[in-house]
Amino acid sequence: METATHMLRTGQRGALFQFQMASRDLRNSFQRIGLAWSLAWHDVASRYRGSVLGPFWITLSMGLMVLGIGFLYASLFNLPLNEFLPYVALGIVFFGVMTGTINEGCDTFVLASGMLSQTSLPMLTFLWRTVFRNLINLAHHLVIVIGMLAFYGYWQTANIPLALVGVVLMLLNASWLSLLAAIASARYRDIPQIVVSVMQFAIFMTPVFWMPSRFGKHQIFLDLNPFYHLLQAVRAPLLGQTVQLHSYVILVAMAVIGWLVTFAIFARTRRRLVHYL
């Protein structure tokens, strides 16, 4: 049995107490991490229920989009296909994971309101549910990534361990952004619209469809864009390119500061969240 056998809830306040309660929520959510997996699997399975291809629609629709955009932009910009197609494929796939995690973060608590208002399930379980759901999607997209790398011969130069470091950094950052979106969306119903707009804007401002070398003298705007570093940390090692050291510094700093701030907000709002819903 995973259920807690002792529960104590008090009206005690104060920053330290709130922090302890939030940490306990975090700990409990890790202890019941299997539940988050089950819920995430269920989400993916139920979305594609009744369709012939099932979850392989995830792979197929992504594959079509990658090929469409790849061929179109390669001819528009006069770029060699063997360079541009894998580049854009990896960009869309990994940026999609970030967008998915952050956008779906908005619904994390809102959709779980039924469970949150009558059980003592840890709230962060639902954050992991959102993150895992997007990881499952990513697993389906990996077919495309591997296919591209193999077909265009990037296999030999790809630095897989470094790319995995990049994936971890990306998940660490996407998850706090997701939690922040979840808390804000529970309180203010305008937030999901804002988040969707920002992410839509970000996909065009980040070198997903275009090469950063084309940016020329406006390089500073690239360095100020956190999504650029997030994407670069995963994509560059896979394409056999190097990641600049300052990207890692920025990503680690962002993860640490982001989680600290978001966790503090979570600790402050945790007991009220269920009433927001």
């Binding site: 529960m7 104590l8 809830r9 008090t10 009206g11 949150l116 208002s117 009558q118 003592s120 007991r271």
Partner: peptide, 12 residues
């Protein structure tokens, strides 16, 4: 059930 936290007092 543990869903609502008290504003005052305690539940055990």
């Amino acid at each position: 059930s543990g869903a609502y936290e008290p504003d005052d007092g305690s539940i055990e």
